[in-house]
Design a protein around this nucleic acid. Structure first.
Lengths: 238, 238
DNA sequence: TAAAGCATATTATAATACAAAAGTAATAAT
DNA sequence: ATTATTACTTTTGTATTATAATATGCTTTA
C-alpha cells in the first residue's frame, strides 16, 4: 500500500511512490513497469488514479507507455533532473556525498555567472534583497536562535533572481536542494559563521558596485571552499 | 478544435495546445483556466482526456487545480523551463532574439565549466566522440552536402556528456534548442566555417591533453563570439 | 516463402456515477 | 447585531464499465 502523505491526492501519492521506486532502480529499462491493471490491483485503486500517475511520470520523462507494449522506464538520461520531485527522489536513492559533488560542480558553473550578471543587470530593489539576506546572515552568525541556513538560501536565491535571467532563477530549487544536502555533511562550526557572512557581504558589495568580474571571482571562491571541504570528506571516507 | 500533430495521442495534443496557450499568456494567473467541463465542451472530448492533459501540465509546473476553485495558472517562475515541451512553447511565444541572449548567458555558464570537467574526468571514449564531431565539422566546413549544424550540436552534446556529470548532460536539450535558435539569426556564412571548426578542434585537443583551464577559456571564447554577434544584432534592430 | 488476415493483450478514450473538498448563503443561537 | 452552525452548490477527485485503437505474434493462404 502507498505511503500516505499529507496534502497529496491519490494520484499524486502514487506518482510519488512509483517515481521513487523507478529512480531507486526497482524497475529497470528492460523489465518496465507492471501493466495498468496490475498496478490497480497492487495499490487497490482505480485505473483512473493509476493512469493519472502514469501521465505525470511520463511528463517528467521517467516513463512512456504504448498500447500492447505496456509501461516502459525511460533511460535515466531522459529523466528531467531539474524537476523538484525527480530531484528529491534521486536524493532518496543515491549516496548523497557523490551527488553533492555533482551539485557543487553545477553550482560552480551557475552561481559565479549569476553573480556577474547580477552586477551587470540587477535592479536596485534586487540588490536590496541580497543585502537583506546578508544582514540576516550577520545576525544569524552570532544569534543562535536565527537560522544561518535560511539566510544563506535567501542570499543565493536573490542573486539568481538579480541575474534577471529566468533560466538562472529557475534553478533556485536545484540550489536549495544542493544547500540542504550540504548542511547534512557540514559539522555545525559556528566559529566560521562570521567570516562566512562577510564573504557573502563582499559579493553583495561587488554587485552593488557593478563589478561583474569581482562578483564572479568572489562567488567562485565561496563555492570552491565548499568543494574542497567535500573532496577532503570523500577522500577521508574512502 | 485542437491542431492535429502526428504521433501524439489526444491528451498529449491537448497538453500541447493548452501549454502553448498558457505560455503565450492567453490565460493569466488571475483568470485561470476554464473548468474541466468547459474544456471538454470546447475541445469536444471526454473528461478523461482533459484530466490527463491537466495532470501533465501540472507535472510541468504550469497549472494546479483544486476542488471548487478550478484550474489556476501557476506563476511563470514556477514553470519548469528545462522541460523540452515548455521550452518549445516559450520559443513559440517570445521574441526569439531576447530569449537567445538569455540562452547564451546560460551557455556561457554551463559549457566552459563542462569543458573543464571533461578535461578532468572524461573517459577516452568520450573524447573520441568529441573528436568525431570535430571531424564532422571539418568535413561540413567544405562539403556543402554535410550539415555543419548537426556536427556542431554533436560537439557540444558530447562535451556535456564527457563532463561525467548528469546535471550538465541533462542540459543537452536546452543547448540543442539554443543552437537551433542561433542558426535562425545567423547569416549562412560558409566562409568562416573552416575557422569555426578549428576553434572547436582546439577545445577537443585541450580536453585530450587534460588542460581544464585552457578548455574552459577556449569554450568561453567560442560562445562569447556568438554573444557579441547577437548583441550587435540587437543593437542594430533597436 | 511471403503476404494477408486474425487473435490477443494493453493502452486510449468515452461515459456515467458518486465522493470529497471548499466556498456561499441561509439559518439559528447568543 | 453578531457569530456559529447548517445546508447547499460548484468543481475536482475517484471509481466503474464499456468500447476503440494499436501493436504484436500467430495462422492461414496464395
Amino acid at each position: 500500500m502507498v505511503r500516505i502523505i499529507e496534502n497529496l491526492n491519490l494520484s499524486e501519492q502514487v506518482t510519488n511512490d512509483l517515481g521513487r521506486a523507478i529512480v531507486a532502480g526497482e524497475y529497470s529499462c528492460e523489465s518496465g513497469l507492471p501493466t495498468e491493471a496490475q498496478l490497480c490491483e497492487e495499490y487497490g485503486i482505480s485505473r483512473t488514479a493509476v493512469r493519472e500517475a502514469v501521465k505525470m511520470l511520463a511528463a517528467k520523462g521517467l516513463i512512456s507507455s504504448r498500447p500492447r507494449q505496456g509501461i516502459s522506464v525511460e533511460q535515466p538520461s531522459n529523466w528531467n533532473l531539474y524537476d523538484t520531485s525527480v530531484l528529491s527522489w534521486l536524493l532518496d536513492s543515491s549516496p548523497s556525498l557523490h551527488v553533492l559533488k555533482e551539485f557543487l560542480q553545477m553550482r560552480l558553473a551557475i552561481e559565479p555567472q549569476a553573480a556577474a550578471l547580477a552586477a551587470e543587470f540587477a535592479r536596485d530593489e534586487d540588490i536590496d534583497q541580497i543585502e537583506k539576506a546578508v544582514e540576516a546572515m550577520r545576525t544569524a552568525a552570532t544569534d543562535p536562535s536565527a537560522s544561518m541556513h535560511d539566510a544563506d538560501l535567501a542570499f543565493h536565491t536573490s542573486v539568481l533572481f538579480a541575474s534577471r535571467n529566468r533560466f538562472f532563477f529557475q534553478l533556485r530549487d536545484f540550489i536549495r536542494t544542493a544547500l540542504n544536502v550540504s548542511i547534512q555533511h557540514t559539522t555545525p562550526a559556528k566559529a566560521n559563521d562570521v567570516a562566512v557572512a562577510e564573504d557573502h557581504a563582499k559579493i553583495c558589495l561587488a554587485i552593488r558596485n557593478r563589478q561583474p568580474e569581482r562578483a564572479k571571482n568572489l562567488m567562485t571562491h565561496l563555492i570552491d571552499e565548499a568543494m574542497s571541504f567535500i573532496e577532503a570528506e570523500i577522500k577521508r571516507r574512502s
